[in-house]
Structure formats: structure tokens, C-alpha cells
Design a protein around this nucleic acid. Structure first.
Lengths: 165, 165
DNA sequence: TAATCTGGTTTCTTCAAGCAACCTTATTAA
DNA sequence: TTAATAAGGTTGCTTGAAGAAACCAGATTA
């Protein structure tokens, strides 16, 4: 049956995945970040089926991650370019890349070395930080009581230690 | 036909998406980060079909994102817990959450307010930074020449300005 | 002894991914 | 002037995965 959608989910992660959480969308965005703009180039670089690419590009345009620009030059007609919303996926893509490099390194290949164009410095590993820049792990964060956090009550009552008196 | 897999891709983003790039896996990991550990709890919280949850949990265990622990207490038998590799997905999940909150805010709901457990401070927006902590956008980074970047030659020769003399 | 809980597996249906062929418009080559 | 090629799709077909619901087995509790 059709995939379940999360458009109206109260969870922003689910809503984000709704737009870029399929197998291809983030790879399309990634290549757009590398400079790819044309249908055929996406198709060749990604090895994606043409109808699926059509569908993904249209969906990304619908969701305003990409915009479709008519460039009427020598036989080519359209370009797909990142919007600000699309460019804003940069931290996600970088975090994914770093995770992949760390935990599934390619057997005989150096990880891709991204650097600051101006200074030539490598980028640092993505980390979650508090307001001061102090790194935080998943164990360091919590959701204030009374917040709209019904979706993630840490533990059901029936699962409390009191379960077995 | 079956989904294309990227196990052996030279792109670490593709390899990462291979493990957590489907509709459900990251949501399972997200709820694991919130403290969910049991099959039935994942199932109820996510509203996922049981066979699909089985499949995803098994795949995540295979990929060492989760580990399956036998806890033989009162009828319950197993728990699924994050490994270090799984906990390392934290920046990705947070980046997704922030992107979703920023670009697809829920109509009548405040974004989830995650805070540092110790200081009570909110976490800061994820950003890509250079070695000094300077924020970088997608336009600020490049891949050094000669690097293993065959996959992302910025532009095909045929697409250069020289195209039309 | 039966009901319940947990963690599944099985069956069936529907939909989407992938492949390949085809199509339309515009440009270039012969 | 016609033919070939390129860009950007669309259509039809096949297969596999997602979803729903039923079923099941071992252990616990009532």
C-alpha cells in the first residue's frame, strides 16, 4: 500500500522527512549543492530512473526546496536551482556525510575533504551545542514540562518501576 | 522494482542514506532517543505496521544503529537500545527538526523546545562551521583539486561557457 | 484454566520504484 | 532540406515493498 505521509504530524522531524526523507530527494539536493542544475545531469550522475527523477524534482519544486528556471539557451530549457529553503538543508547533508564517513568509511578511499573556500580550512564535525557553544549529547537535552510534548512522553506509566510492587 | 541500494557507493551521503534514509528508520531512531525501547511502544507511538517495524528494527540492528537486549522481566523480553553509532545520529535528527520547525512550522503549535538538562539553556541552531567555528554556507565550501571527487565534478565540459563560441 | 502481554510471522492488496520505449520541441550537422 | 541529436519529459509494464489485519507462540498474571 502507499507510503504513510506525515504532512500534518505534530512532529517536525516527521514533517521534514515528508519532504526530503525518501531515498532520492536528499541526493538530488546534494548534487544541486555540488552545482548540478539540469535534468540530464541529475539523471546521469545519480543513475536514477527518469520518471522517478521527474517526480522528485516536481515534488521538491512543490515544496520550494528547488525552483525551476526557464533558461532558453541552445536546446536546453530548464534549470533546477536551490532555494534558500533548499540551501538550508546544508547542515543536514553535511551531518549525514560525516556520519557516513565515520561509521561506514569507503574501504579504499579517503573521505571527501570539504574546505572553506576562503581560508582553506577543513570544516569541523557537526555537533549539537547549547547557547554558549558547549557540545551536547542526546543525554544532555530534555523537553521542558508542559511543553507540547505529548508525542514523546518519555515512558508510559505502565512501564514505570512501580509496575511491579 | 526493488529500490536501488547504495552500499558500495563512493558517496558517504548515499551510504548513510542506505542505512537510515527510508521513511521510518530515522523516526525509530528519534523515538529511541526519546527513550522508547520496546517493540509495542515503537509501534503505538509511530503508528507503523508491525511487519515493517520488524523489518526496520532488524535492519537497524544489522547496521549496528540499535542493539537488541534480552531483558527477561514480566512478559517483556527485548529492548532495542541505541548504540554509539545510533546516538551519533543526534546532530542529523536535530538538524532535521530545526529545518522542519523553520520551514514547515506546525500551524497551531510551538516548536519543540529542547534544552540542556544542566543549564536549562536552549540548543542553538545547527550550522556548518570551519575549524574556528565560523559559520559556512554551501557557497563557502569546496573540494580540493585532486581529491577523490570524481563523483562531483562541478560541471561537465560540454556545459562550460565555451559551449557556444 | 483462561486471559493477557510481548514480539513477532503470514497473507493479501495496493502502490511506487525501476526499466525501457516513446514523444515533442529545438538545435545542430550533412 | 532533411536527418540526427539533445533536452525534458510521459507512458506502459513488471516487480517488490508498504500497509492492514489476522494469526501465533511463549511467558505472565488473574
Amino acid at each position: 500500500m502507499a507510503r504513510k505521509r506525515f504532512d500534518d504530524s505534530s512532529c517536525s522531524v516527521a514533517r521534514a522527512l515528508n519532504e526530503v526523507g525518501d531515498w532520492w530527494s536528499l541526493l538530488v539536493v546534494l548534487h544541486a549543492m555540488y552545482g548540478t542544475r539540469r535534468f540530464v545531469d541529475f539523471q546521469q550522475e545519480l543513475g536514477i530512473a527518469r520518471n522517478i527523477l521527474c517526480d522528485r524534482l516536481a515534488r521538491l519544486v512543490d515544496n520550494q526546496v528547488l525552483k525551476k528556471v526557464d533558461v532558453g539557451e541552445h536546446g536546453s530549457r530548464f534549470e533546477y536551482r536551490l532555494t534558500e529553503k533548499g540551501r538550508d538543508l546544508f547542515p543536514i547533508v553535511i551531518a549525514l556525510r560525516q556520519w557516513g564517513d565515520k561509521w561506514n568509511p569507503a574501504p579504499d578511499q579517503e573521505p571527501l575533504d570539504l574546505r572553506d573556500r576562503l581560508t582553506g580550512r577543513t570544516i569541523r564535525p557537526m555537533e549539537v551545542q547549547d547557547a554558549d557553544g558547549k557540545p551536547l549529547t542526546v543525554r544532555d537535552v530534555f523537553v521542558p514540562e508542559g511543553d507540547a510534548a505529548d508525542e514523546l512522553k518519555p515512558r508510559k506509566a505502565k512501564r514505570q518501576p512501580a509496575d511491579k510492587p
